[in-house]
Amino acid sequence: MSFTVCYKKNILLLVLLFGWFISSAQTGKFRIGFQLGYVSRINSINLNPNHSFENIKNSNGWGFDLGFSGSYLFSEKFQMRFSPSTEFMEDNFIFTKNGISEEFTFGYSYLKLPVHIILTPFKNIPIGLVCGASGNLQIGKTNSRPSDKIKFKRNESFIELGLNYMFKTKLCDFIPEVKYCFALTNEAGDNRTEYANAIKDIYKNKWEVTLYFR
């Protein structure tokens, strides 16, 4: 997957956020680290009943993210985590009309700003219950060609629920986590062309599998 995005800008944003984490780590209750994740989109699409295409197919997108995390431990059972990252995503749409198919691939990069509350209810089992929200700000895309035919909204918002498990080692804490992200933003609404008018609603729900190291 190729992305012609402004990598220097993305890296600068992450470095500045990491510097903020370092400057904020003034007590033993604050933990910093980094993360690497895989993202799988499960798009929910509603079509307008009067669209002019024989078939509209969407291959659920995929991507990955990387970034930093900062957690504040209020107690052994309750913590809050802020984990900004850069996410790279790709979506694919195929519109078929009069037996001719047109394929559009959308590649985006986002600045993700999620905040999570993590509860660890079991004393001897380090399973965490994760609940939070995230806002995604689009900061780059592959090219403008698909946007000539159809364009989606730039920013996204999610409610996120998941589970994690902490493995403690001598070097660091290793925390694999699985989350389901419920999209709150209807990214349709572009009415310029027949391609855009065909899609009434699109909510880009997703699964995330993330590895946290701290």
Results as ranks from 00 to 15, higher is better:
F158C: 00
L129S: 01
L129M: 11
L129K: 06
L129I: 14
M166F: 08
M166Y: 10
Y110F: 06
I118S: 05
T169D: 05
E156C: 00
S147Y: 10
K151V: 02
I159Y: 08
I159W: 07
Y165E: 04
S147F: 13
C172L: 14
R154E: 13
K151R: 12
G162N: 04
F122N: 09
Y108L: 05
F167A: 00
I139M: 08
Y165S: 01
K123F: 14
I150Q: 02
L119R: 15
D173S: 15
I159R: 04
I139G: 07
K168H: 12
S157I: 11
G162H: 01
F174L: 15
G162Q: 01
N143D: 15
I117E: 05
S134D: 12
K170P: 07
L163C: 03
K168C: 08
L171A: 14
L111T: 02
I125M: 14
G162I: 01
A133I: 02
F106E: 06
H116M: 09
I159N: 03
P121D: 11
F106V: 02
D173V: 03
I139S: 06
E160V: 03
G140W: 06
G135E: 11
K168V: 10
I117P: 05
S109C: 10
A133Q: 03
I150W: 03
C172Y: 12
N124A: 13
P121R: 13
H116A: 04
T105A: 09
Y110N: 02
N164I: 04
G128R: 01
N124W: 15
G128Q: 00
